[in-house]
């Protein structure tokens, strides 16, 4: 079994959607093509614990918080204990908050390549995180921040120039599953 959140359709005839905790706890990911007959209740704490037995500590930590916030306190407590056990097995165990900051770092970094997100906000979040937690100031993270700053900086390229074409590539998008996308999303590449 996997565990997921079932979200009822907003209106009649709409689609029921399923969201699961992303690998390493970095947000939620929609699960597609769920067969309704394969879905069962998750009222039992031990059933859920069995379903997440092989998950990593970060996944368990994020899921524990979500259960805590949604009133599943017994499940949340068990998940949190399991997360700490997983963390304890790391060669150099980080604190719970350090793990949480890493989750946030990867989450906000991932947002920069999601469609329709506000990269200036992503940058603000990442800069704040790096400010608060100096362990995140690795050379590669710093390089990423500098590049993101240049991505969100006001564009100076003149339309029609090579520089403008390169700037437009920051909005290029290709469906990872190969489904056709809107022509505009690939126009910068073909130009």
């Amino acid at each position: 079994y996997d565990v997921a959140y079932r979200v009822p359709a907003a209106k009649s005839g709409g689609r029921v959607r399923y969201w699961e905790v992303e690998y390493r706890g970095v947000g939620l990911r929609e699960r597609e093509y769920v067969e309704p007959a394969a879905v069962e209740g998750a009222e039992s704490t031990s059933d859920v614990m069995r379903a997440v037995a092989f998950r990593d500590g970060d996944y368990l930590l994020a899921f524990a918080v979500q259960c805590q916030e949604r009133g599943r306190f017994d499940l949340a407590t068990r998940l949190y204990a399991q997360a700490r056990e997983e963390f304890g097995e790391d060669e150099k165990p980080l604190t719970v908050f350090e793990n949480l900051h890493l989750i946030a770092w990867v989450y906000w970094r991932k947002q920069t390549t999601e469609r329709g997100t506000d990269r200036a906000q992503d940058l603000r979040r990442l800069l704040e995180l790096a400010e608060e937690d100096p362990s995140l100031r690795t050379p590669s993270n710093d390089r990423f921040l500098r590049r993101l700053e240049r991505t969100v900086a006001p564009r100076k390229s003149k339309p029609g120039t090579v520089e403008a074409l390169i700037d437009e590539l920051t909005e290029y998008w290709d469906d990872p599953l190969g489904f056709p996308q809107k022509p505009a999303e690939r126009a910068s590449y073909w130009k």
Binding site: V3, E40, A42, V65, Q68, R70, F97, I103, A104, L129
Partner: peptide, 29 residues
């Protein structure tokens, strides 16, 4: 180690997402 309520507070402060309030936890076989 911090209590879970404090971890949850930090999780939200960091802008990490929660499932919709009306979502129901299920298992998928």
């Amino acid at each position: 180690h911090p209590v879970l309520a404090d971890v949850a507070k930090e999780y939200k402060r960091l802008g990490l997402p929660l499932p919709p309030a009306h979502a129901e936890l299920v298992r998928i076989n």
